[in-house]
């Protein structure tokens, strides 16, 4: 237990240390990666631990993004209230979608979440007068601050992203190591048996979905606030697939896997696109090779071979 807590606190400390030594480009990139990692952390809670594969998480990310961005723009709120509002939108959205979608399972769950998310995407386009549709809008610079701290500056942005990541990763660690977390894994392994043991799988799956949506919403709201842009492309299907890729690459059902996966995907695209205009080819090939060589993702394979204690 101490070893596990130590590892996670150590990773957070390492990221704080990197703040002082990382070259500028990697410093700004890592800020974005940390925000997106929170999205993947939440996705993994549902997919990796509970065994539910959603193809509609962009809906929750976008709920956070638009909730924050539109409330700030409309009421002149600063980052704090904007973040809370966006976060609440995502939680409510996850609760509503969960109540409906969790009546299905397996591939049907995939498709239902995908379709609800597609409705969300079309909604951002349809209410163009308010959202500016695909073009999106910029959150005014002067609102992107909390307690008079300007979040549009590289340093505060990094520290804010790190703070969000630290809170998220510790909460997730607490969840997966709690009795609830063990029941989620039990549902993944055998839902019927869990039911027979007297637990209500629906209630636990709903809890997992709402928590997962909350992480996605926090990430979306933070993304809008820290990078200043809100647009429909973040509600599109690609952004539902993104956290799935991060998680699969980093390690399904691991706490830190999403961080590893998000970092790996970012640099894979960044480096490959510098070498060739056909960089999608490398991304595709990397996915295929990875799944053939290390099917449990980077951290999942490490856990299997060397560190079985990893959560």
């Amino acid at each position: 237990m101490n070893r596990i807590l130590g590892l996670h606190v150590g990773v957070i400390a390492l990221l704080l240390a990197l703040h002082f030594v990382l070259p500028d480009y990697h410093h700004v990139s890592l800020a974005r990666i940390l925000v997106l990692t929170v999205y993947a952390l939440g996705y993994n809670l549902l997919f990796g631990y509970t065994g539910l594969l959603s193809l509609g998480h962009a809906l929750f990310f976008a709920a956070g993004l638009y909730g924050a961005g539109m409330s700030m723009q409309a009421y002149g709120w600063t980052a704090g209230p904007g973040f809370l509002f966006g976060f609440s939108c995502a939680v409510l959205m996850a609760l509503g979608i969960g109540l409906l979608a969790l009546r299905t399972a397996g591939v049907s769950f995939m498709i239902v979440t995908l379709m609800f998310s597609q409705v969300g995407y079309l909604t951002t386009l349809y209410f163009n007068e308010h959202t500016r549709g695909d073009e999106g809008f910029v959150i005014p610079l002067e609102l992107r601050q909390v307690f008079s701290i300007d979040l549009s500056v590289e340093d505060t942005r990094y520290l804010a992203a790190l703070a969000l990541f630290a809170v998220a990763v510790l909460i997730k660690l607490a969840i997966v190591r709690s009795p609830t977390g063990r029941i989620l894994v039990a549902i993944r392994e055998n839902e019927e048996r869990t039911r027979m043991l007297g637990y209500d799988p629906f209630r636990y799956k709903l809890t997992a979905l709402v928590l997962s949506g909350a992480f996605a919403g926090a990430s979306g709201a933070a993304y809008g606030i820290l990078f200043g842009y809100v647009g429909a492309s973040f509600a599109s299907i690609q952004y539902s697939i993104l956290p799935l890729l991060y998680v699969l690459m980093g390690g399904v059902g691991t706490v830190l896997g999403p961080l590893v996966g998000t970092v790996a995907m970012f640099y894979l695209i960044d480096i490959a696109s510098g070498l060739t205009s056909a960089y999608l080819f490398f991304v595709g090939a990397a996915l295929v090779i990875l799944i053939l060589v290390a099917p449990k993702g980077i951290l999942g394979s490490i856990r299997d071979r060397w560190a079985r204690w990893l959560p």
Binding site: D24, D134, E135, G136, F137, G228, Y229, G231
Partner: peptide, 26 residues
């Protein structure tokens, strides 16, 4: 930051322009 170019130029699609503009300003 990395290429240290003097300026950035040439974007066409509006959503890319609007998504990039805040970072260019900052």
């Amino acid at each position: 930051i990395q290429h240290k170019t003097d300026i950035v130029f040439g974007t066409l699609f509006s959503h890319v322009v609007i998504g990039s503009a805040p970072r260019a300003g900052e």
